[in-house]
Structures are given as structure tokens and as C-alpha cells.
């Protein structure tokens, strides 16, 4: 129960931060990616702001055996850069530019971005359903190359 309450608190805080930062506005996100148009650097300030408390939190994980609720901290993943990481990030970046939405803000704006916002979420979930099969193929191609 406690675990769910803190998860809800973290989700709510994340949503409020997104709203305050302006990253729920698709024009501001698209502006960040529009290097050859009216470039908007706001996203860099958001990233810098977000990385500060997170970097501190990662340092705290080194001093503690586990989280407050007793779960072990996530281990650092394998450092190898596999084809799925790069191909996936290229797909994601392209989709991010097209609508100005990434998963966090798409969820945070779900109740007030109308039918378009819900359609985006539906398509995103469909993409997530399709991903595992594609992931195996890309991994195989990467291993063969």
C-alpha cells in the first residue's frame, strides 16, 4: 500500500513538474528540435533542472543498502550500445518531433488534450505491442553484421 502511495506521489510530482516546465506544450518541444526554425532552448533548462536532484539521488543510493521501502536499487545496465538502443532512439526521436509528445507528457496531458491526445496514446500502445518482435529481428541482424 505504502509503495503504491509513494508511486502515486512520484507520478503526481512528475506530472506537476512537466506542467510547470512547459514540456506539456507540444510547440515548446517541437521548438527545441527545430534547430533551423525558431529554436526554443527551454528543454535544455528542464533537463538541467531535472538532472540535479537525480544526480544527488544516485549518490545517495551509494550510501544506502536499498530503498526506503526495502527494494534493492536498480543495477547499472550493461554498457554495450546495441543496435536496438540506437535504432529505437532514432524511431523515438522522429515520432517525438512529429507530434511534440513523448510518453510522460502524453500521459500527463491525457485528460485535456482531446481525441488527438488519446489517439496518440492508442498508437503508442500499439507500437509497444509491436516492439518485442521487431526487437528480436534487429538484435539478430545486429549479431549477423
Amino acid at each position: 500500500m505504502k509503495r503504491n502511495l509513494y508511486a502515486a506521489l512520484a507520478g503526481a510530482t512528475f506530472g506537476l513538474g512537466l506542467l510547470l516546465s512547459g514540456m506539456t506544450d507540444t510547440l515548446k518541444v517541437q521548438g527545441w528540435l527545430d534547430l533551423f526554425g525558431a529554436w526554443d532552448p527551454t528543454l535544455a533548462f528542464v533537463m538541467a533542472g531535472a538532472i540535479l536532484p537525480m544526480a544527488l539521488a544516485w549518490r545517495v543510493t551509494r550510501l544506502r543498502g536499498g530503498s526506503v521501502l526495502g527494494t534493492a536499487f536498480p543495477t547499472k545496465p550493461d554498457v554495450r550500445l546495441d543496435p536496438n538502443l540506437i535504432v529505437g532512439s532514432i524511431f523515438f526521436g522522429a515520432g517525438w518531433a512529429l507530434a511534440g509528445l513523448c510518453p510522460g507528457p502524453a500521459m500527463a496531458t491525457a485528460t485535456f488534450s482531446g481525441a488527438g491526445g488519446l489517439l496518440f496514446l492508442l498508437a503508442m500502445v500499439a507500437g509497444m505491442v509491436a516492439a518485442p518482435a521487431l526487437k528480436t529481428r534487429i538484435a539478430r541482424l545486429g549479431a549477423a553484421a
Binding site: V87, F91, F92, P103, A106, G127
Partner: peptide, 12 residues
Amino acid sequence: AGLLVGVGTRLA
């Protein structure tokens, strides 16, 4: 956009 974001984030 939604399809690309969904597929891409899960691959990556």
C-alpha cells in the same frame, strides 16, 4: 508519431 514513439522507446 504515436507508433514511432511506442516502438522506438521499447526497442531502446
